[in-house]
Amino acid sequence: LRLEVKLGQGCFGEVWMGTWNGTTRVAIKTLKPGTMSPEAFLQEAQVMKKLRHEKLVQLYAVVSEEPIYIVTEYMSKGSLLDFLKGETGKYLRLPQLVDMAAQIASGMAYVERMNYVHRDLRAANILVGENLVCKVADFGLARLIEDNEYTARQGAKFPIKWTAPEAALYGRFTIKSDVWSFGILLTELTTKGRVPYPGMVNREVLDQVERGYRMPCPPECPESLHDLMCQCWRKEPEERPTFEYLQAFL
């Protein structure tokens, strides 16, 4: 395994491009020591290896001592969030954005069929390849993070704006909380990567959403798509659509 080009840095580690087995181009995620327990990670990795779908980033291998390494397929255009905010983002029109959403829903419909939960679905965790191919990455890892700023769910590192209220408040993460996050991801797509709930801080978002506030229809977004977002944001988790439905609708 060779680490060649550093692609990015996040709160919990770095991402590199490299070569595996001398020939395969891969992405390598390294986790800061202390982010998660190697034992817990190894268990999760076994499950992650079983998830194989064309719209999920394929896991190739893991190094399960500290520092933990995760070796996955390489996606040339990086994260969907950076892609939307970058040069190419300007030229993306609604049909392409909807197609990308459908690809993500397709990957998540598979996660749904496998009775698995992602827990951290957002544009930053979707990767883009050639020809606007989108794949879901980092599934299941969020559960293992041991950082206090994260586990408190009120901490600075927790993605509260993407998280369903029952998950943020009571830790009830299910495929239905993933559906909520998918609704937020749809706003990221239609606004080219704007942060959700602009002008609001995490605490406010939690309070307002509890009181029934939902983001309005983004500019140039059809009402039918906003309606779909609002279905994803129904207060009762069981009233939210399935990913199978979302995939078919898109």
Rank of each mutant, 00 (worst) to 15 (best):
E4M: 15
V5M: 15
V5A: 15
K6H: 15
K6Q: 12
K6C: 07
G8Q: 00
G8S: 03
E14G: 03
V15A: 06
W16G: 15
W16P: 00
M17A: 11
M17L: 13
G18R: 01
T19E: 13
W20Q: 14
N21F: 14
T23C: 09
T23M: 13
T24A: 08
T24P: 10
K29R: 01
T30F: 15
L31K: 14
L31H: 05
K32R: 08
P33C: 07
P38T: 13
E39K: 09
E39V: 08
L42G: 04
E44F: 03
A45E: 03
Q46D: 14
V47N: 04
V47F: 03
V47I: 14
K49C: 04
K49Y: 04
K50E: 14
R52W: 13
E54H: 13
L56Y: 01
L56G: 03
V57R: 15
V57A: 11
Q58Y: 08
Y60T: 13
A61K: 13
V62M: 15
V62T: 11
S64M: 05
E65N: 09
E65T: 11
E65V: 13
E66M: 15
P67T: 03
Y69L: 15
Y69S: 03
I70E: 02
I70D: 02
I70R: 01
V71F: 01
V71T: 12
M75L: 05
K77A: 11
K77C: 10
G78T: 05
G78S: 10
S79T: 05
S79D: 15
L80R: 02
D82N: 08
L84I: 10
K85L: 10
K85R: 14
K85P: 07
K85C: 11
G86M: 06
E87I: 14
T88Y: 13
T88P: 12
T88A: 13
K90F: 14
L92G: 05
L94G: 06
L94S: 06
P95V: 07
V98D: 04
D99F: 15
M100C: 10
Q103Y: 07
Q103S: 10
I104D: 00
A105D: 00
G107V: 03
Y110V: 04
Y110P: 01
Y110C: 04
Y110W: 11
Y110I: 06
V111Y: 00
V111Q: 04
M114V: 05
Y116L: 06
H118A: 01
H118Y: 03
H118R: 02
R119Y: 01
R119N: 04
R119G: 00
R122L: 00
R122E: 03
A123I: 07
I126M: 08
I126C: 11
V128H: 04
V128N: 03
V128L: 06
G129V: 05
G129E: 08
L132G: 11
V133Y: 12
V133D: 13
C134I: 10
V136A: 04
V136E: 00
V136R: 01
R143G: 02
R143W: 01
L144Y: 13
L144M: 12
L144G: 12
E146D: 06
E149N: 05
Y150P: 02
Y150D: 03
T151S: 07
T151M: 12
A152P: 05
R153L: 05
R153E: 07
R153Y: 05
R153I: 05
Q154M: 09
G155K: 03
A156N: 05
K157I: 15
F158C: 05
I160G: 03
I160Y: 11
I160F: 12
K161Q: 00
W162A: 03
W162I: 02
W162M: 00
P165C: 14
E166Y: 03
L169K: 05
G171N: 05
F173V: 09
T174W: 14
I175Y: 15
I175N: 13
I175D: 14
K176Q: 13
D178T: 00
D178I: 00
V179R: 08
S181P: 02
S181A: 05
F182H: 03
G183N: 00
I184K: 01
L186A: 08
T191G: 11
T191C: 07
T191E: 08
K192H: 07
R194C: 07
V195M: 13
V195Y: 12
P198M: 08
P198A: 10
R211V: 10
G212Y: 06
G212Q: 05
Y213R: 06
M215L: 11
M215I: 11
P216S: 09
C217T: 13
P219D: 09
P219S: 13
E220P: 06
E223A: 12
E223P: 11
E223V: 11
E223G: 11
L225G: 06
H226T: 08
L228F: 13
L228P: 05
C232E: 04
W233F: 05
W233I: 01
R234I: 08
E238G: 11
E238A: 12
E239N: 11
E239D: 05
R240K: 00
P241L: 04
T242H: 15
F243T: 14
F243Y: 11
F243M: 15
E244A: 07
E244W: 13
Y245N: 07
L246H: 07
L246M: 09
Q247A: 11
F249T: 08
